[in-house]
Computed example of a mutant assay.
Amino acid sequence: MLHKAFKQGLGLACVMAVLAGCSSTSTTDENASTAAADQGVNTGTTTQQDVSATQEPVVALETVFYFDFDQAVLKPESRTALLGHAEQLKAAPRSIRLEGHADERGTREYNMALGERRANAVRDFLVLQGVSGSDLEVISYGEERPASLGSNESSYSANRRVELK
């Protein structure tokens, strides 16, 4: 009987040791990090306060730009948002895809060309603002990927667009 109790106790001790070793506690000593930070020592850890002090807040900019019927001319509100995109792209260059779209009116070929002209209008504006043209890919979907289904002015206006992706 004593032998059985000893085995159970030893088994329980082993399980507890495994559980203690698998616990998910932080391995960083917060007091040491704070003391090192007070002395100006870099511990390799970054606090949220450090990040917010060095980075500017990211402003969410519009990524869909709408056009008038049969037009590839940027509207003033689109230009304003694109200026913000241009600043971000100059500060941190990355590849952007400009997807041109058209509503269902017109032939498929005409709408493909119109979507391309719209995407090129956005690309040209960004390039004029100093964004590298090699980072901008232009593609036209014409009427093939509508944002809104329907044959009314509301749907048409939602589909005459360029999307930044």
Rank of each mutant, 00 (worst) to 15 (best):
A53I: 01
G150C: 00
D135I: 07
I139P: 01
Y141P: 00
S23Q: 12
V122Q: 04
D68A: 14
H101S: 15
D135Y: 06
T80D: 12
A60V: 14
G40E: 08
L82H: 03
D103H: 12
R123W: 01
N120F: 02
S148D: 05
E104C: 00
V64A: 12
R108T: 15
A32I: 13
F67E: 03
S134W: 06
Q71S: 15
P146M: 03
L126N: 01
T28Q: 07
S132T: 09
L128K: 08
L82F: 11
S134R: 07
P76M: 04
V58H: 11
S154P: 02
A92M: 11
I96Q: 02
S95P: 04
L98H: 03
L128G: 14
A102Q: 02
A86N: 03
A81Y: 05
G133N: 05
G84T: 15
R108M: 10
R145L: 06
E77W: 06
D124L: 00
Q55T: 15
S148H: 09
A32G: 11
G142M: 07
A36T: 10
T25H: 10
R118M: 01
D68Q: 10
G84R: 13
S155I: 00
Q129T: 05
A37E: 13
V131M: 05
E62T: 15
G150T: 04
A92W: 06
G100N: 06
G133F: 01
A72L: 01
S78L: 09
D135T: 14
R94W: 07
A60I: 09
R117S: 13
P146V: 11
S52E: 11
G40R: 00
A158F: 06
L114I: 04
P93W: 12
L136P: 00
I96R: 03
E62M: 14
G150R: 03
A102W: 01
H85P: 09
A72V: 02
N111C: 06
E153P: 00
